[in-house]
Structure formats: structure tokens, C-alpha cells
């Protein structure tokens, strides 16, 4: 097994005809993901290398049975695209777009709570179940099929850690980027719960960073609900308060959201935290041994 994306994924891409959208759609398809449709308003009837394009997500769902959507729409239209995907009944919406206003996401999140649909992102690299399917912008070469799950707020850092554990001969069940924004659709806890229920995941690496309290809350969840071991990493010990470190969500507010605070909280709850990506890989190997 794996989580979120696999051979049952039927993907529709919102913003499929844009430069980035098209590039990554074709990469996802080449990896083996079942890409069934694309959506660009006004371009129904066209196709992107054989992938049929529809005017609306609802049309695409009715014609193809798509169950997963990937959003590549610019920030000013992306909130609408998320609502469109949810309204069309898509089970899993993966929003790659970076730069969606926080107030929009407060409303999206509240709306999302009314259904059992799932949103991953925004500002995320997507998810990959190596050997099965990838939805998003992750470089697929870095990953190999295996039994370690990874959940992360950061893209490049995830690739780095995946490669380091891959170099030690350990592959991944699913790698999930939850996104670097202050409000994202799926939290660490949501994804950790899925990994816990996945019989093919033996260990989870959680890659956190400064800002918010998701890591601390995840620590409590791990202590109370997980038998699968979790190894942590936190980036941003050197970040000064009040400065946004690249990701909209990576900001220390007052005295809350520091890397040290997160590391201390996780360790107090029994989660081992590596001080750098290499040490994380070493702890993974040690824990699995």
C-alpha cells in the first residue's frame, strides 16, 4: 500500500495548458500516473499530448471519473480553483500554487471542514508513491519504492533527506509535501494518521520548520496514537523572530514557533530529532535496524 496517490489515482490537472502545468503534467504521466483530464476555461476540446482538456472540473469529472486534482493556477485564481475542485466532488485536491492569500485559506479551510474531502497544500510539491504514481513537482529520480513514509513542509529539503536515506538503501512508501503556507489543507497529524494506518510504512520522517505549532501538536499525536516510529527534523534554528524565511508560514511570531521550542517539545514526547539531514538519515537507519 501507500497513501494519497497510487495506481487508483485518476488525475485532472487545473491549469494544464500553462507552461508549468503542462511540463509537470507530462512528467507525472511519464512516471505512470493515470492523468485522465486537464481543465482550462475556454479550451474544451483541445488536448495536451492526448490528455483531453475540459472547460470545468465538473465536466472533466463527469467525462473521466477523475478523483484527484492538481492545481497549477496562478495565486489570484487559485482559491476559486480549489473551490471548483471541491464543488466537483474531487476526493483529493493537491494545490501546488504558491502565494495564495492567507485570508482566502482561512475560508477554504473552514469550508473544507464541512466535507470529508482532502486538500494537500497549497504551496506544496505534491505527493509521490514511488513506483506507483506521482502528483506534483517532485524530482522522481530521488525516490525508490520502500517502506519509509516522509511528510514535510519543505520541498528541496525533502528531496535531500530522501536521497540521503536512499543512498543507504532505504526507499519510501509515500512522500508527502504538506506545503509551506501558514494554513494548509492537511496537517502533519492528518498525514501521520494515514501513515500509521498504512501496513506498508514502517517508519515516518517528519520534516518541520519554524512557525506555527503543527510540529508540537504532531508530537502529542505521535505519543498518544502512533506505534510506527517517527524521526523528526526541524529547520530554522538561526531564523530571527518576525522575519519570513522564504515560506509564508516560516516565521517566528513573538516567542512562539521557534525551532528550539519544536525540537524540545518533540524530544520531550520521545521523538528523536536529527540536527541536520545526514543525521536524520542515520537515525532512520539505526531505528530500522
Amino acid at each position: 500500500m501507500s497513501i494519497l496517490v497510487d495506481e487508483n489515482t485518476k488525475l485532472v490537472v487545473q491549469g494544464v495548458t500553462g507552461r508549468e502545468g503542462q511540463f509537470h503534467t507530462l512528467r507525472n504521466k511519464a512516471y505512470g500516473t493515470n492523468v485522465v483530464a486537464g481543465v482550462t476555461p475556454g479550451k474544451a476540446g483541445q488536448d495536451v499530448e492526448g490528455i483531453p482538456v475540459f472547460n470545468t472540473v465538473r465536466d472533466a469529472v463527469e467525462a473521466t471519473g477523475a478523483n484527484t486534482s492538481m492545481i497549477f493556477v496562478p495565486p489570484r485564481f487559485a482559491t476559486d480553483a480549489i473551490y471548483e475542485s471541491l464543488d466537483a466532488g474531487i476526493d483529493l485536491t493537491i494545490a501546488i500554487t504558491e502565494g495564495i492569500p492567507a485570508h482566502d485559506m482561512m475560508r477554504v479551510y473552514t469550508h473544507l471542514g464541512r466535507s470529508d474531502q482532502r486538500l494537500l497544500g497549497p504551496n506544496c510539491p505534491g505527493a509521490i508513491s514511488p513506483g506507483k504514481a506521482t502528483v506534483g513537482i517532485m524530482p522522481t529520480d530521488v525516490f525508490t519504492p520502500g517502506r519509509v513514509g516522509i511528510v514535510s513542509r519543505s520541498g528541496t529539503l525533502t528531496y535531500q533527506i530522501s536521497k540521503e536515506i536512499g543512498d543507504m538503501g532505504i526507499g519510501q512508501s509515500t512522500v508527502v509535501g504538506i506545503g509551506g503556507d501558514p494554513i494548509v489543507g492537511s496537517s502533519f497529524i492528518d498525514v501521520l494518521g494515514m501513515f500509521e494506518a498504512d501496513p506498508d510504512t514502517d517508519l515516518v520522517v517528519m520534516v518541520g520548520e519554524i512557525g506555527g505549532d503543527e510540529e508540537e501538536r504532531a508530537g502529542e499525536f505521535i505519543a498518544a496514537n502512533m506505534t510506527t516510529p517517527v524521526v523528526g527534523y526541524i529547520a530554522g534554528f538561526q531564523a530571527p523572530p518576525g522575519k519570513q524565511m522564504g515560506h509564508a508560514g516560516a516565521i517566528i511570531t513573538g516567542s512562539s514557533g521557534t525551532a528550539q521550542g519544536k525540537k524540545d517539545a518533540l524530544e520531550a514526547l520521545g521523538v528523536r530529532v536529527g540536527t541536520n539531514p545526514t543525521e536524520v538519515a542515520e537515525i532512520v537507519v539505526e531505528t530500522l535496524a
Binding site: 519543505s154 528541496t156 535531500q160 509551506g180 534554528f237 538561526q238 531564523a239
Partner: peptide, 28 residues
């Protein structure tokens, strides 16, 4: 390239006994 890897780089520089001059993400 990438916010996470840059934050991580700052931390590693500090662990090596140095002081980072900046955070700069040239983009994923």
C-alpha cells in the same frame, strides 16, 4: 534553492561555529 534547504544551511553553518550573513532562497 528552496526555503527549507536554505534554513537548514544556516543551521549547519551555525553548528560549524560560523554565523550566517543572510537567508537567500534562489527558488526551487
Amino acid at each position: 534553492n528552496g526555503a527549507g534547504i536554505v534554513m537548514s544551511s544556516l543551521d549547519v553553518v551555525a553548528l560549524a561555529g560560523g554565523k550566517p550573513a543572510n537567508f537567500l532562497d534562489a527558488g526551487g
